[in-house]
Design a protein around this nucleic acid. Structure first.
Lengths: 224, 224
DNA sequence: TCGCCTCCATTGCAAATGCAACATACTTAG
DNA sequence: CTAAGTATGTTGCATTTGCAATGGAGGCGA
């Protein structure tokens, strides 16, 4: 477990904030620390949206409950992770998800209004803070968009090509190394692992690509 | 075709800005108007990211080119629509997409730095503008997340249930009216229309739901 | 070296899906 | 009212996919 300030500094919301400024910034934001025992709710669905949270210690699950009461884990938040920012910034009335401590956790809660309102003593942090928030939301936006482009393909082959092509364009190379194991790649593409393997083999036999473990090479000529 | 100011006011980036303030705001932002003929590029992939754009007249396509050079239309932008905001706010170095006028178009370009930097004469618009930008990004974020939850389901049935359940929870009712025709729903879920119809019929026969046109009723007991 | 474990490829099979073609409402213009 | 056009449901068929089970390769500790 890291120290409080070390953890805080890992959170992208506080990027480019001087260490020496952190303490006064947190005071200015009226940030509060809370501890939660295992399975305790940090936020509960239908709560009013007022704050964003930063995981200081332990970890949380972002949970969603569907119409029939089935719970799904949407995401996991570990040390330094920020959560609740989209709902706050979107001006949502009520939370559509719950946040629950998976293990004993310590959370920093910050009132959203305090972040976006430049404070009376006009401290310069707010500008940085808001810029960081924009940055976080926008990056997440790009990631979501990219994943959507992949998942909007109907077949496993097309999902694979969409994913690999995007990586290749980003890396400006037809040789790419993906940060996933097979199972993880299958999870990312939302397909069955064995079906993924089968399709990969077929594509290699057809000369669309070559691969070895996590190393892939896209073939130029395959205009399909 | 609407007047310049009428169009501007439709753009969510300028929400809550007084009509009387608009003109000086635009001057402060050094916003510039440009006209493009059909098929001209407003932005080109790999351009440096410097500005966001607002469609004043005509319309644009957001295009993406994959590894093999195939172009895909990612989105359409009509009068009052904002584009390029995610890349600007995310601090992307190079644009991963192109923006092209589909028909003769007039575009308002605003340098991103001017938006997020509170100007020397500290005019109050910037605060509103930045808040609007946060709002836009966050709302888009929520929409993307929700669609991703639906598309991450592997079967048509599960996609349908995920979508309908989300609507039902949002509307707090088991009776919902969807804003889509069948074809549009199929497109949203990224499945074939006939397969969607087939699955809907099957689900109705199994008692999971009832429907008539765009009106759906989810059954409570069906815990599956 | 042996045994255990994890990751990955392969395969059989039933079910789901895309696709194309066609049938059936419902809408709208004339 | 009629005719054309559009939206939706239905169905056959080839293909794709998920699922479960199996086997092999490589890593690791005893």
């Amino acid at each position: 477990m890291h120290s409080f300030f070390e953890t805080i500094k890992k959170c992208p919301l506080f990027a480019d904030i001087q260490d020496s400024d952190l303490e006064s910034l947190l005071r200015c934001l009226a940030a509060t620390r809370h501890t939660y025992s295992r399975d305790a709710f940090v936020f509960h669905a239908d709560d009013a949206v007022e704050s964003v949270g930063v995981v200081l210690a332990g970890s949380v699950h972002i949970l969603q409950e569907d119409f029939w009461g089935n719970r799904t884990i949407l995401a996991h938040g570990g040390e330094g992770d920020l959560f609740g920012e989209a709902f706050s910034c979107a001006g949502a009335e009520r939370l559509p998800v719950s946040v629950m401590a998976v293990e004993p956790a310590e959370i920093l809660l910050i009132n959203y209004r305090k972040i976006i309102t430049t404070c009376p003593n006009s401290c310069g942090f707010h500008v940085t803070l808001i810029r960081n928030m924009l940055h976080i939301l926008a990056r997440k936006n790009m990631m979501l968009t990219q994943k959507l482009e992949v998942l909007s393909m109907r077949t496993t082959r097309d999902k694979l090509l969409a994913y690999l092509s995007a990586r290749a364009v980003a890396e400006q190379s037809n040789r790419i190394v993906i940060p996933f194991s097979r199972q993880e790649l299958a999870d990312y593409l939302c397909v069955d692992r064995s079906a993924l393997s089968r399709e990969l083999g077929k594509m290699q036999r057809e000369g669309l690509l070559r691969y070895d473990k996590s190393r892939f090479e896209l073939m130029q000529q395959s205009m399909q």
